[in-house]
């Protein structure tokens, strides 16, 4: 098993009364998964992913990463865990510091003991995966567009070749085209490399279009683990977790209320909405 949480609790201080994580249990396979983590700001999403590569240690319960117990102990070695699980923070481009794109992407593998040649090859492979053209490699990362800088930063994590890649809101701040491009690349990387990709997002249109499995956090508790369709069909849950519907679902509901559209399954994406409208009342399976 890649990541396994059993009844995980987390508090910032021993005496604190509020738990940032409260009895969280789930597991994620070491390959071939695409998981999105949702929840409003402060619900515990970032705290949870920081447990996935040992940045935070659980106050209670058990976290296992690639079958290793992550507990507070002098023997705990975090480097091998971080080889398995790469974590890309929000606005990762703020952490770029090297003078060329290639050097910046090479930093990670070199840090994990690769030779210069090996690191260079890994960096080049990572850049290719994330769609950074080779003529940019010798350029300064600071003269690139925001979207390109974001990719360079993600390439830095990819170059370590982790089995599981976690991204905290990778699309925030990109323009709409940049968002789509990055999501398409992530899907492509997932399919090509079979890595498990886990990402935090607030963007319900991205969830509707790209998620397979969804985890929802609410007040430190894992309140949902399942498919996108089921999540968005259950309106009382959405309200309770403070989640919005995707744009197309909102429009579909609006049309239904006006008596202009009927459907068995709530359309979540624009193509599902289109199909539902054109087929009229027919089943839009």
């Amino acid at each position: 098993m890649g990541i396994d949480f059993q009844n995980v609790d987390f508090k910032y201080a021993k005496k604190a009364t509020t738990k940032q994580l409260d009895q969280v249990s789930f597991s994620i396979q070491e390959k071939d998964e695409f998981v999105m983590i949702l929840g409003q700001t402060g619900s515990g999403k970032s705290t949870m992913v920081q447990h996935m590569n040992g940045l935070l240690l659980a106050s209670g319960g058990q976290v296992r990463i690639f079958d290793q117990n992550i507990i507070r102990s002098k023997k705990l070695k975090l480097k091998p865990i971080r080889r398995h699980v790469g974590l890309v923070f929000q606005f990762p481009e703020y952490q770029i510091f090297e003078s060329t794109v290639l050097k910046d992407v090479m930093f990670g593998p070199k840090n994990f003991g690769k030779t210069k040649e090996e690191a260079e090859q890994l960096a080049k492979d990572a850049c290719q995966l994330i769609g950074i053209p080779s003529d940019l490699l010798e350029r300064s990362p600071f003269n690139l567009s925001g979207g390109q800088m974001r990719r360079v930063a993600i390439a830095g994590s990819l170059a370590i070749d982790p089995d599981i890649l976690i991204l905290d809101e990778p699309t925030v701040g990109l323009d709409p085209k940049g968002k789509d491009e990055l999501m398409d690349l992530l899907v492509d990387i997932q399919q090509k490399t079979h890595k498990t990709i886990i990402m935090i997002t607030h963007d319900m249109d991205i969830v509707a279009n790209y998620a397979k499995r969804v985890l929802v956090m609410n007040h430190g508790k894992l309140v949902y683990d399942g498919t996108v369709q089921e999540l968005f069909e259950n309106e009382s849950h959405l309200k309770q977790y403070n989640l919005d519907l995707p744009t197309s679902a909102l429009l579909a509901k609006g049309l239904k209320e006006k008596g202009l559209l009927d459907y068995q399954r709530l359309p979540l994406t624009k193509s599902q909405l289109y199909t539902a409208i054109v087929r009229g009342g027919e089943d839009n399976e």
Binding site: D175, P176, D180, P246, T247, T269, L273
Partner: peptide, 11 residues
Amino acid sequence: SGLKLIDGLDV
């Protein structure tokens, strides 16, 4: 112009 249509507009 590099802009993305809102889903509804696209439909």
